[in-house]
Design a protein around this nucleic acid. Structure first.
Lengths: 209, 209
DNA sequence: ATAAAAAGTGAGTGCTCGCTATCTATCAGT
DNA sequence: ACTGATAGATAGCGAGCACTCACTTTTTAT
């Protein structure tokens, strides 16, 4: 049996490699098993790294989780941006946007964020670390939304509409008890999303081109 | 020093007494400290009971939590009913109802329910136990809502509106990171609730009396 | 009054977890 | 090549957890 040549890597590369491996493993653990089952040992197994490696880069489990929170916050903003830049002229188009947003909210990155949110309620340090990340996330989402729909409705209303939409989708995701919530939405959920779309476009009608 | 007479209690009374003490203590622990910090020892201390007493009535910690879930589900329906039976003719009245609903959603009973919901996502047994409780809760809320507003909008729309409202409020509660979320809502939240109220009454206008 | 049954106590048990200490492997500068 | 520094692996420790067991107290039935 031949030994792999083990190409040379600089220390910075090794460092960054294991760090991102740990962060991604943490995201996977949180999304799949939940906060309590995301032990340091589980994360290390998932990342293919020893525990010593974890505690070299993160002084404590909490630090790892805080870093993970900031990690997914960035990704969530990007996901929001890429899935939302679509036409929102007709009701059907808004329904499509809402459906896509629902999928984004149910993605592992958002699931991870939610898991950390509820854990932060009982953990002052984690909460303190997530507060700024949360505000920046909301602010960036508002910026993206303004680029798209800013011309159609006043700024105050836009923030309100955004709050209604994302909080409703978050509530749906939190309350999802099914093993695979990404599957087709239930009848009432589908109707609720369509109704919301109708209410929005009827309140802020499209000016004819 | 005199010893209190220690009035005689039947066994059934003793039993029920400690059981409800344990359930209430579990609700308090879950609402204040969160799922992870709700250890059997903590619950027993909070309830003023020994650990042996707990494990006499509940074979496992999970059983206690399942019982607690069903316990709060009933209370949540009652809270919903009592806070919602109000006029919903004008926008201002709907705003009032939404504000009250927000307070109910932020109550300890609902907080406990939410904590168990996210824990159930990673625990098959707990999930299986909460699924029927959840459905019955939603069904009963729909019944209450129908009594109130059933005359004003079709049944399908009513379920959809209810879904929008409670999911949005749940999303708000889940995402609340402040130490006391029961306090005055932020500006955008206030605007979002008002906007939602306006959209609802404008879509289902009141027929003149 | 007495015995059986039920309720409640509290010390203890095995196990998992976060974390540390010790050791080895890899890289960087000379 | 040699040396210090950084990265990673492994074994193990103390604390806290869910749960058990032998025992005492209280109620019930005879």
């Amino acid at each position: 049996m031949t030994v792999t040549p083990a190409q040379r890597r600089t220390q910075a590369e090794r460092r960054e490699g294991t760090i991102t491996a740990l962060l991604d493993a943490t995201v996977r653990c949180l999304a799949e098993r939940g906060y309590a089952a995301t032990s340091t040992a589980a994360v290390c197994t998932e990342a293919g790294v020893s525990q010593g490696a974890l505690f070299r880069h993160f002084p404590t489990r909490q630090a790892l989780l805080v870093a993970t929170a900031e990690h997914v916050a960035e990704r969530n903003v990007e996901d929001f941006r890429t899935t939302v830049d679509t036409g929102v002229d007709t009701v059907d188009e808004v329904v499509v946007v809402l459906g896509r947003l629902r999928e984004v909210v149910l993605s592992p990155a958002n699931q991870t964020w939610r898991e950390l949110l509820v854990a932060a309620r009982a953990d002052a340090d984690l909460r303190g670390a997530m507060l700024p990340a949360r505000e920046s996330l909301q602010a960036q989402m508002l910026v993206v939304a303004t680029e798209l729909w800013g011309a159609r409705l006043p700024a105050d209303d836009l923030a309100a509409v955004l709050s209604i939409v994302v909080n409703m989708l978050d509530g749906l995701a939190f309350s999802a008890l099914d093993p695979d919530p990404t599957a087709a939405p239930g009848r009432t959920v589908e109707r609720a999303l369509r109704l919301l779309a109708e209410m929005i476009v009827s309140r802020y009608p499209q000016e004819p081109r």
